[in-house]
């Protein structure tokens, strides 16, 4: 089984996150850049399949600036085999239309059976990229999976996944090649060991530009027209419970016509 796992580097959710007021793009300078937690889980899901069947290969793929190499190295040190880094200044500010075209083009360059992605990134939260890729590639997709297993191999086998979303539990079955996205219900990522960290430096990382992928007319379908910052919230009243807090709270509700 050949697996490609999609990886995204994002501003750390623990740090201050800002948008550039002119472009509406994420201001990468103010926050620390980290591999998105959900990407780590997607890598873990791929490596778990590799643990069970040593013939499985795991390739990481990211689109991002030079610094995104750190995210790939993290995944390689966890145990992935190799990586693809799509890196091109022309892709700064790409919307999902461009991003899905670029990643689909990169996926067409090599053979694979399964693409595993996170269900949504913490900076974009769009949650549409995996299904857009599947649509562009003409393959089946199953998104938002809390768990999945393979029945049989890449030839003739199936992937069976479970999802629990928006009040419905579902079991989904699909063949290969296909694209799945996983949720944070999937297991936490393993920690890279010392050998993994050393070995990661020697693993191949293919760097590609948009031109390498034969893509030239990269005009975003969507443009940002305005960016406004909301004033931060202020703290209000705070009381220490001495037995009368419930009555004080009920008074507060009444004053705001909430009861």
């Amino acid at each position: 089984m050949k697996i490609i796992t999609l990886v995204k580097q994002v501003p750390d959710t623990w740090s201050e996150r800002r948008l550039d007021p002119e472009t509406g793009r994420v201001d990468r300078a103010v926050s620390e850049a980290v591999i998105d937690e959900i990407s780590e889980r997607a890598i873990e899901a791929a490596l778990a399949l590799k643990d069970a069947d040593k013939s499985t290969t795991v390739t990481l793929l990211t689109m991002g600036p030079a610094g995104a190499l750190d995210a790939l190295r993290k995944g390689l040190s966890m145990g992935a085999d190799d990586a693809v880094h799509i890196r091109d200044d022309a892709l700064q500010g790409a919307d999902v239309t461009i991003t899905s075209r670029v990643i689909a083009a990169a996926l067409l360059r090599r053979p694979w059976d399964l693409v595993i992605a996170g269900n949504e990134s913490t900076d974009g939260r769009g949650g549409v990229l995996p299904a857009m890729l599947a649509e562009r590639l003409g393959v089946a997709s199953a998104t938002g999976l809390d768990s999945f297993e393979l029945t049989g191999g890449a030839a003739g086998g199936d992937l069976v996944g479970r999802r629990s979303a928006d009040g419905v539990d579902e079991v989904l079955r699909l063949g290969f090649p296909s694209v799945v996205s996983i949720t944070e219900r999937m297991p936490d990522a393993r920690f890279p060991n010392f050998r993994g960290i050393l070995g990661a430096k020697k693993k191949p990382v293919e760097v590609l530009t948009a031109a390498d992928l034969g893509l030239t007319d990269l005009h975003p379908a969507v443009s940002v027209v305005s960016v406004a910052e909301r004033p931060p919230r202020q703290a209000g009243t705070r009381i220490i419970d001495d037995g009368s807090a419930a009555a004080a709270l009920a008074d507060f509700f009444a004053s705001r016509r909430l009861i």
């Binding site: 997709s141 009040g167 419905v168 539990d169 579902e170 079991v171 699909l174 296909s178």
Partner: peptide, 10 residues
Amino acid sequence: PTAVITEATE
């Protein structure tokens, strides 16, 4: 090609 829903419970 599409995923097939084999079970659905609300």
